[in-house]
Design a protein around this nucleic acid. Structure first.
Lengths: 216, 216
DNA sequence: TCACAAACATGAGAAATCCTCACGATCTAA
DNA sequence: TTAGATCGTGAGGATTTCTCATGTTTGTGA
């Protein structure tokens, strides 16, 4: 949210150079996250976002070429955070731990991120809005899968690198969709689904990546 | 597509009574499916849909209270078809077959539906557009899960009915999301993902629902 | 067959929304 | 301090969703 605009981004019309407009830019992003979370992407008017950010519609369009670019910038920010969280969870240095334990903790971290970032759900619910957003989402999944891949590769396995890559991608995708499912109902339901997610992933992965023997 | 408007639908402004307007209604739905598939929901203008259906914008709004109601009506039609397909795949009369076989065939049927109905992907990509659509999607998943539930319950298992329900829902959700993943890249990738989906589901379900002994 | 009412079809235009741009304000470097 | 670059503004142009007054078509009872 308070992340400065990433230099390589193609989605911004104009990078703010003065600190004044840097702050304005951040205010717009924060306001957009709020308004999107409150009324959804479709019903969030650019006027409302600008007003919430205490600025004018013209300033908003100074930074963003169109409405969907605001969503994209938000998505980039969330993606970066989530990538960091799961890179730690799948640190290959942890590969001596039991697989179940690592899975459980990764799923918990994932869940925690979803819960603490209310805007994330809205942004990624709109994933299929534009090809750009689709690509961003796909890239995020694939990057998370890459971390899992490296973690899994650090274990002895008969699988080829390509097979490991596929298995990692499937695991990430599955965990993600079950995460979303878990948020649709009551708290009790959520806990059941998360617990079942861990079971499912363990049953899927364990036959392929047996736990290493305890250190001598 | 050629389905008559379901009598219980809340999303229609006006049910057509004369056959003339019945046909017009169907033409609008077909046109909408085409235009949505071509340019996506957002960029599909109601004007373009009406023109494609060889009618006027007024006629369109005679039937549908707003643009999203068209999407909803389409979604209802697809949901009905998909429900039917999977009800057959999980016919409890098949519960004497090996679990793997039934899973494989259900996944194949699911895939076939996705591939043969180009509009389906677009419609359900917009699932989070409105609360109504979200509910419809959730209900569909839950109904498919109910079929699977009945199928699984016909096998001996130590699980409680509630546990079976949860397991069924998780399975359906997982298969659905992996289905979508499978369609994002090449044909070879799709086949790998579908094959892995079957493996994952089998590993998850088999410990809970062992195959029945062969008939004496 | 004809007259009448109910159902239906139409498209101009109201309302809402996205986005532009000309102008004025502010900042920075020399 | 001042010239030039950067920035902020909001009226209004362009587009899209949706309404409704008006005219047309259809079914029915005499």
């Amino acid at each position: 949210m308070t992340t400065p605009p990433s230099p390589g981004s193609e989605s911004l019309r104009h990078l703010p150079r003065q600190t004044r407009s840097q702050e304005r830019f951040n205010r717009i992003l924060e306001a957009a996250a709020q308004v999107f979370a409150e009324v959804g992407y479709e019903k969030a008017s650019t006027e409302a976002i600008a007003t919430r950010a205490s600025t004018s519609i013209g300033s908003l369009y100074r930074f963003f070429p169109d409405k969907s670019a605001i969503l994209y910038a938000l998505a980039e920010s969330y993606a970066e955070q989530l990538r960091k969280v799961l890179a730690e969870a799948f640190d290959p240095a942890l590969s001596h731990l039991p697989l179940t334990q690592v899975i459980n903790e990764a799923v918990d971290d994932f869940e925690q991120f979803y819960i603490t970032q209310p805007g994330y759900q809205v942004v990624f619910a709109q994933t299929r809005l534009s090809p750009d957003l689709q690509k961003l989402d796909k890239r995020l999944d694939s990057e998370i899968a890459l971390h899992l891949e490296k973690f899994l590769a650090a274990r002895q396995s008969t699988l080829s690198p390509e097979q490991i890559r596929l298995v990692a991608l499937i695991s990430v995708e599955t965990a993600g969709s079950l995460q979303i499912l878990s948020l649709t109902q009551t708290e009790a339901f959520r806990q059941q689904v998360m617990s079942e997610t861990k079971t499912l992933l363990t049953r899927y992965l364990h036959p392929l990546f047996p736990d290493p023997p305890p250190k001598p």
